[in-house]
Amino acid sequence: MAHPALKSKLEADVEIQAPPEQFFQMLVSYKLRDVQHTCNDKIQRCDLQQGEWGKVGTIIDWSYVHDGETKVAKDVIEVMDPDKHLITFRVIEGDVLKEHKSFSLSLQASPEISSSGSIVHLTLEYERLHDGIAHPETLLQLLADLTKDIDAHLPQPN
């Protein structure tokens, strides 16, 4: 039985220049593989393993740098909502599952009221294997930094 104290959620908001549609399209299209060129200090590989870019059930294989170490993850797209500019990935294999029973990441881009940009809401939901495992704040920071790197790579509105 799951220990309720081991289930947690971390959230962060990242302000970007791109409109929600543009950021979301980057995440759901074949262009996601370009993220390794945009942020090669953080992402070393992003390969379509099974399915089609931007479809629920698609499996993506990642190699990334976290806390100075190269790590791997295999994610499945669980939620894809173009109207809400929301995508959720669930990790099904990889380094993060050495310390977590379950791990998922959601990104949702919403219009920024005071500009033509967006706010990207990042959510990590996870269950640690035991109390001795730290919450993945550095992973959340990595994702926030990646979001900014992706935004910097997108064509900026005039």
Rank of each mutant, 00 (worst) to 15 (best):
R128D: 02
T138M: 02
D81T: 07
V91K: 11
T38S: 09
S106F: 00
S114G: 14
S106M: 00
W53E: 00
G51D: 08
G132K: 11
W53K: 09
S29C: 08
D145W: 02
L27Q: 10
P82D: 00
P157D: 11
V91D: 11
K55L: 14
P82N: 03
Q141F: 00
K101P: 00
F103Y: 10
E52Y: 09
T123H: 01
S8V: 00
F103M: 05
D47G: 06
K55F: 15
V76W: 09
T70N: 15
F89T: 06
Q108N: 02
V72A: 12
Q156F: 02
H85S: 08
A144S: 09
V35S: 10
L97V: 12
R33N: 12
D41M: 07
M26K: 09
D83Y: 00
T138Y: 00
H130Q: 10
D151Y: 07
P20F: 03
K148A: 08
L10K: 03
Y30H: 11
I77A: 10
K74S: 12
G132F: 02
A5D: 01
E127N: 08
L124W: 03
L140S: 10
A2I: 01
K55P: 13
D34L: 12
P157R: 13
I133P: 12
F89P: 02
D61N: 15
E15K: 15
H121E: 05
S114D: 14
T58L: 10
H153C: 11
K9C: 01
L154T: 07
R90V: 13
E137P: 05
D67H: 09
D149C: 13
W53P: 08
V72G: 14
E78M: 15
R90L: 09
E52T: 13
D47F: 10
E69W: 11
L154S: 06
I119Q: 04
L32A: 06
C46I: 15
L105P: 06
V56L: 06
E15R: 13
D13V: 13
V35H: 04
V56R: 06
E127A: 07
G51T: 14
S29Y: 03
A144E: 01
R45Q: 14
K74D: 10
H100M: 14
D34H: 13
A134H: 08
H100N: 15
P20N: 06
P4Q: 04
K148T: 07
Q108M: 04
T123K: 04
D149Q: 13
M1D: 07
S114Y: 14
P82Q: 01
E11Y: 02
E78P: 13
Q44E: 15
V91T: 12
S106D: 00
F24R: 03
T138H: 05
H100Y: 14
G132A: 11
L27K: 08
N40A: 13
L107P: 01
H153D: 12
H130G: 09
F103W: 05
A144F: 02
L86G: 03
D81W: 01
S114W: 08
H135I: 01
D13C: 14
L143W: 03
E112A: 11
D41E: 09
L10A: 00
D47L: 15
D145P: 02
G117P: 05
T88V: 13
M80D: 03
N40M: 14
T138G: 01
A2Q: 05
L32R: 05
W53Y: 08
E137H: 04
A152M: 01
S110V: 13
H66I: 11
L140N: 05
Q156D: 00
H85P: 07
K71W: 08
Q22Y: 06
L6T: 06
